[in-house]
Simulated assay, not measured.
Amino acid sequence: MASRDQALSLLAAANNHGDLAVKLSSLKQVRDILLAVDPSLASELFPYLAELQSSPQSLVRKSLVEIVEEIGSKAMEYLAVLMPVLLALLRDADPDVAAQSVISGTKLFSGILEEMAVQMHHRGKVERWLEDLWTWMVKFKDDVYTIAIEIGPVRTRLLALKFLETYVSLFSPDKNDSGRPVVAGSRHVFNVSWLVGGHPVLDPAVYIAEAKRIVGTLFDLLKTASSLPGCLTVTIVNCRSLCFQ
Rank of each mutant, 00 (worst) to 15 (best):
L232H: 00
D203Y: 12
S193M: 15
G230Y: 14
K141T: 14
V138G: 12
V81P: 01
L52Y: 02
K141V: 07
M1N: 08
I112K: 08
A93E: 12
A36C: 00
C243G: 10
I71V: 04
G18M: 08
P181Y: 04
L89M: 05
L64W: 09
M83Y: 03
A12G: 00
C243K: 14
I103Q: 11
V118R: 03
L222P: 09
I103L: 11
D19Q: 02
F244K: 10
I33Y: 03
D220Q: 11
V118Q: 10
N238L: 07
A160P: 07
L218S: 05
I33V: 03
L34V: 05
V37H: 01
A205G: 15
I67N: 00
F244P: 09
L34K: 01
S40V: 09
S172M: 10
A36G: 01
D143V: 13
G72E: 04
K28L: 13
V97K: 05
D94I: 03
K62M: 08
S9Q: 01
D142H: 13
N15G: 04
E165Y: 12
L113G: 06
M1R: 06
H199S: 12
Q100S: 03
R213V: 08
L159F: 05
K223G: 02
V65P: 07
H17I: 01
G152T: 04
L222I: 04
S193P: 08
S43M: 00
L59I: 03
L232R: 06
R187F: 05
D92A: 06
P204S: 15
G152S: 13
K175Q: 07
L45H: 09
S169V: 14
S3K: 05
T235Q: 13
L52K: 00
D96Q: 05
A211R: 09
R157N: 07
R187I: 12
F46T: 07
N176W: 02
K175A: 11
N176T: 14
K107S: 15
L159G: 08
L86G: 10
E70H: 14
K74M: 03
R61W: 09
A75S: 13
A209Q: 15
V196H: 14
V189M: 15
K223D: 08
R180Y: 15
T156S: 05
L49E: 02
Q57G: 05
M83Q: 05
S227W: 13
S3H: 01
L161V: 10
A80K: 14
R180F: 15
L41V: 12
A14S: 00
N238H: 09
P181R: 09
I112P: 14
S193V: 14
L49V: 07
E69L: 13
S58R: 09
W136A: 08
L195H: 08
V215C: 11
D142P: 03
G72C: 13
L41M: 07
S178W: 07
